[in-house]
Computed example of a mutant assay.
Amino acid sequence: MEEFKVKQLKSLFYIDLAHLVKESKEEGFRFLERLVNDYEDGTNKFNKPGESLYGLFNKEGVLIAIGGLNIDPFSNEEKVGRLRRFYVSKDYRRNGLGKHLLNQIIYDAKNYYKVLVLHTDTEQGDSFYISFGFSKGNLYPNSTHYLNLLNIV
């Protein structure tokens, strides 16, 4: 794992993620394209207290996975964070790298939030998040899964 490094991304303007956007669109996902558009127009820069955008880079410094942490915009409850724009390049899946990235996001989320929510509409996503301890349910608006961070050591 030491050849892979999770970094907090301070600005998307200096990161090459065109290859991930292209790959995700080919798989039928538009959320990385939305990530770039929202970042560029200022809609979501992951820069409020408790928010961050993370990248996972290989030893050559190429971005191979990305994921963000936002204050949940759909919840009226305090201390609810939302996992957003989580994507791992298909060449790097099923070898623990997604877990490596998600571990860092959860670790940081515990400092700000009581609950972490997300929305996924794929079977693979559902299985991945459940294996991580997320519960499936619609307790939170526009969410399919949630994780009580108070129970995480």
Rank of each mutant, 00 (worst) to 15 (best):
M1Y: 11
M1D: 09
E2L: 10
E2I: 03
V6Y: 08
V6M: 12
Q8L: 08
K10I: 13
S11E: 12
F13Y: 09
Y14T: 12
Y14F: 13
D16Q: 10
L17N: 07
L17F: 14
H19I: 00
L20G: 02
L20Q: 07
E23Q: 14
E26W: 00
E26K: 11
G28V: 03
F31Q: 03
R34A: 05
R34H: 12
R34V: 01
L35A: 03
N37G: 04
Y39P: 03
Y39V: 02
E40F: 14
T43L: 11
T43M: 02
K45H: 04
S52Y: 15
L53A: 10
L53P: 08
Y54V: 02
G55Y: 08
K59S: 15
V62Y: 13
L63W: 09
I66H: 10
G68E: 02
G68T: 12
L69M: 09
L69Q: 05
N70I: 15
N70M: 11
F74Q: 10
N76E: 12
E78I: 05
E78R: 14
R84V: 15
R85L: 03
F86D: 02
Y87M: 05
S89E: 02
Y92I: 07
Y92W: 14
G98E: 02
G98I: 04
L102C: 07
L102Y: 04
N103A: 04
N103H: 08
Q104M: 08
I105Y: 08
I106L: 09
Y107L: 13
A109G: 01
K110C: 10
N111F: 14
Y112K: 02
Y112R: 01
Y113E: 05
Y113T: 06
K114F: 11
V115F: 12
L116C: 09
L118T: 07
H119E: 12
S127D: 11
F128K: 07
F128R: 10
Y129E: 00
I130V: 15
S131R: 13
S131N: 14
F132C: 05
S135Q: 14
N138V: 04
Y140N: 07
Y140E: 04
H145N: 08
N148D: 15
N148L: 06
L149P: 03
L149F: 08
L149D: 11
V153W: 00
V153E: 14
